[in-house]
Structures are given as C-alpha cells and as structure tokens.
Design a protein around this nucleic acid. Sequence first.
DNA 1: AGTGGATGTCATTTC
DNA 2: ACGAAATGACATCCA
Length: 536
Amino acid sequence: MLYIKKYFTEGLIQMAILLSLCGVRVDVGLEPYLPSSWHERILGPSLALTQTQFHNLRNSLEDGYGLHPKSVDLDSFFTARRLLGWVHSLNRLQSFLLCNNAHFLSLGLLGSLRQPEQTMLPLAPSADLDDPSSAFSNSNVNTLHSPPDHTDLLAEDFSMGLNAEDNLSAFNMNLLMPDLVDTVESSPCVHCVPHPEHLAGFDVNCHSCDITPSSFATSLEGNDMTQEFQTSPSSLFLVDKEEDFEDEDDHPLDDLLDDVAMLDDIRLLDLALDEGFSPEMAARLEEEGYLDHEGAQQKTDDHSVSDSSSSCLSAVGSPFSRDRDYDAEEGLVGSDMEVEIMDRKLFNDFSWQEDIDHDHTYNQPWFSTDAFSRDEWHAQALKIPFSNELIVNLPVEDFNDLLTNFQLNEDQLTLIRDIRRRGKNKIAAQNCRKRKLDVLQGLEDEVSCLRRHRLWLLQEKQEARKKLQEMKRQLDVLYQEVFSRLRDENGRPLDTTEYLLQVGSSGNITVASHQQDALLPMRGQKNSKKQRGKKK
DNA sequence: AGTGGATGTCATTTC
DNA sequence: ACGAAATGACATCCA
C-alpha cells in the first residue's frame, strides 16, 4: 500500500509541476507528502527576500518614494518574483527529477537510438544535459514518472525529446552517477550496470559514447562491478547492431574494454593499498584526533571484509554511502545498505531526497554532497549510525526522538548536534548568499532603472527649456507688435526708449514711462488708478 | 605568488 | 525565554 501511495503521490507531484509550468497554482493535497522545505520550492512562493526584508522593502517602497516602476505595482513586482522563484524551484526540481530518472534517461537513449530517424519534438531541437533546464524542457512529461516497469513507455517518450547525442550524454551521466542507475533493492556494487530488464527489447549502440577513462574510473571506483563485468561485460555497453565497423581492431568497444580492464586493475590496486581506509582518510582521522594507529589498523581490519564498500566511500562520497562496520554488541548497523534502510525507516518521508543526494552532476548547493565530507569523517570515526542527511533534515521532533531512542554516548550526541547545526547553518548560509545576490541584482536593476529615469528627466528638462525659449520669443514678437500699434496724444508712435508695456498682477496692461507713472490704461483695465512706472 | 569567487563554519543577531 | 533562521566575519580551497 505504501508502495502504491508513493507512486500515486509522485503522479500528483508531476501533475502539480505541469500545472505550475502553465502558471496554475493547484492544491492537490500534496503538502502532507512533501517535506516542509519543498512546499515552498514546489508548491509555494519562493521569495528570495526574508520576511524582514520583505516588510522592510515593502515599507520603504510605500514610503512615498514612487519613482521606481516596481513601486507602482508592488504586488506585481512580488508576483513576478514569486513566479521567478517558481522557475528557480522548477530548475531545482528538474535536476532532482533528472537524477531520479537517470536510468530512464538511459532508457530514453536506448529507445531513440533504436529509432534514430524518429522525429524530434518541434520545441526540442536539442537537449543539453549540462543545462538541466534544457533536458527538462525537452523531455516528454511522461519521463517525470519514476515508477519501475514503465520502461517501454518512458523510453519511447523520452526518445522524442532527446536526440542521439544528448542521449549519449545522458548515458554518460548514467555512468558518472552510478548510484542513480539502479534502485536501492539492487546490489550497491553493480550500480552502473544497466538492469537486464531495462535492456530487454532494445537494440542500441554506444559507438560514439564519450566515455572517458576518468568517468569510467569514477564508476568503477564507486562500485565493485568486477564480478558483474566479468560475467556479462556486454551488459555495460550498448552495441549498434545496425552499424558495421570497418576495422575490427579499431572497434571502439575494444578500446572501452581495454580502458575498463586497465581501470579495473587500478581499482584493485587501490583496494589492495587502501585496505579499507585510504591513507588520506586515515591521516585525516588521525590528524583530527579521531583515530590512532591502532584504531586505524582496527578499522583496516574491519574493512577487510568489505573492501569494495570502502572503496565506494571515496568514490561515491554520498552520505548515504557512509561505510560502517559496527560491532554487534553496539546494536548498530553493519553495512551501507543497512544504514540506508535505517535511514529510510527513520525518515521514510524523506526517502526521495536520496536520489538528489546521489546526484554528482549538478553542483547546486541543495544537491552538493562534498560539503559533508569533514563531518562524514567524524561521524564515521564515532560510528554514528545515521547519515548526515538524516541528521540535518529530520524535523526537530523526530530528531529529538532519534537522540532519545538510540543509545548514544556523549561524544556521539555532541557530534550529531554539531552535524545538525553545521548542516542547517550551511544551508542557511547558502540561502543567505542567494538572497544577497538576489537583493544585489534587484538593486542593480533599480539603479539602471533610475538611470533611465534620470535620462528621461534630463530630456524633459531640455524640451522644457526649448519650449520656454520659444515662448519668450513669441512674447517678444507679440510685445513688439502691440507696442508698434500704440500712439501718443499727438498720434505719433510711442518711443520704445521712453515707454514700455507693463502687466499688472491682476492682468491689467498699462503703458508706462521709463521715468514716469503709467500714462495709458490698456484693455482689461478696470480702474483708473495709475500704476507706478518701473525703470527697465 | 597574488587574487577573486565559492563555500563552510563560528559568533552573533534577529525573529 | 528559547530555538531556529539569518547574517557578518573569517578561513579555506580552487581556478
């Protein structure tokens, strides 16, 4: 039932995402199934401003300073920001979905290469997997589904949205993110081997796969796939049955096989040298006082029974892959898978995040796993039975229950609290910096807008000055015309050096002498009181 | 070697 | 008053 519920919930999430892409806010009752932190990312506004900043900004904008266009319609401004936040949220979400469906990406590759002539979606000329948004926007929405056993549909759908080259990139990503390829139920040591069921029914190739030794090394180091590869090496590669290679010796597959063999040797050599703890890891633990030589040796001995998993630690680097071999009397777990299972039991609602954490492609803060490295060392040294992700992301109540329900010594409790505090603060710092950048960007926008407004005002001033000059000119013409028509008592024109027209405060116009009082009342004059003359 | 950006961490403030 | 979030300051890493 829980299984069905999970995928039904995912379907609802996908529907909400699609509707959100259309700008429709829907309430499908997803909130109870989403971690609180994702309510804002997926379903709610994603304002970059803090509540305080929001109010401060709002107050400042409403404080009579109305030049900025954003202040004219603040709601529109924040609505725009909210929508932008949605877009950002979708970017993050699509990364998550891309990771969550990495194996389906590869299946999409299989499907599209089976039908290379298949028409691409008009709006999806190409997908750049370096840009998650591209892959997201180009992929058919059905690829959002993650339930298993939909491989045919998914492959067919996704092949419509990705061309062959992109799918090859997807396949490369598949190799680079081995933890994403297979489900938790499968062995942690065969992650980068496509599941046989997923391969069934597909005629595919990989002749142009850009598989570099380093990328493959990542896959191999993170997973003990020797056995799997030896038994079915072809399962790793997708051979094009439709294309013949001119020279068998130059068959790319041979090169890849050589690379794999060489890298496998390197991996085995590393395992032999490392014996569980790598020298670097042991040195760091010793340096930080968590391990002495005896401890390191003890740890080494412990790892001798699970050397492959210890190799996974350095390569995969996932908090969920923390290698542990705990003593039975301590009542703790004894393998990565058991840690994962425990984490799932403890934090079932957060199981989806594991797919994010296994993403090694996107260097986004929310998906970064490198950050936990130092605490990972410490946690491993003190044999903390949970992943750091769990420690950091558990709700407060659950976290407190976790601390009380497990027998943990003082050092462990202190470390767990520190891990949680640092993890929370790290996320807070990331958000804070993002907000700061957003605010900075907003200020830059405001500056550019104010500059444009200043330019507009200068132009207005220039035009007003021209209009004023023109009015002065017209007034002068009018003055001369009026003055030329005036006559004195003898019928002679007035001398401009002796008389002038004077406009009173009430609009009365009089003829005044430069040296005497006004002589003649003009039109509009309503009283006989003489106006005092003015000298020029 | 110097520099700037990115990031983690701690101390402190703010909510 | 307390805990979580926010933020400034500093250290470190890396290109």
